[in-house]
Amino acid sequence: MGVVEKGTFRKPALKPLTWLLNYSRKYSLWMYQWGLACCAIEMGAAMVSPRYDIMRLGVIPFPAGPRQADLICISGTVTDKMAPAVLRLYEQMPDPKYVISMGSCANCGGPYWDSYSVTKGVDQIIPVDVYIPGCPPRPEALLEGIVLLQQRIQSEDMADRWRGDPIVVG
């Protein structure tokens, strides 16, 4: 992405190109589903139920692994035993990557706010883009979360996202 780092896309003439890149990215989100608890069933309903059908929004479920995913949906309770695995999977995803935290448990602990074994919010370990409230949220709520994320991707400036410390290999 050398062009991006040089700031080529910031020139006014190349604005449409940024728009096109973002437009293509937002309608081909490969979603790695991280079904943990009750919300996984509602996520499954959103993905395979003919009534909701998440694929019409351009979200492609069931990639073979986190290496092929753009988006991860944390649906359900993250326990302290599970948290290292969540972090490890998130780190395997290629940049740019997005996180949807689905349900009260992933947002803040939910009904287990005083439990000894539950991580109170997945945002303690990985950065979250969209929070979906509910216990569990309806599949429609997940669809709205996806639409919000797509709006965010469309308005994103890739140069801003990529500016930072250079990646050093070796």
Binding site: L36, M82, S117
Partner: peptide, 14 residues
């Protein structure tokens, strides 16, 4: 097992 242990039995006490 235990990746989904949420501590129900303890939570019912409070």
């Amino acid at each position: 097992c235990g990746y989904m242990h949420r501590g129900y039995e303890k939570l019912t006490e409070v």
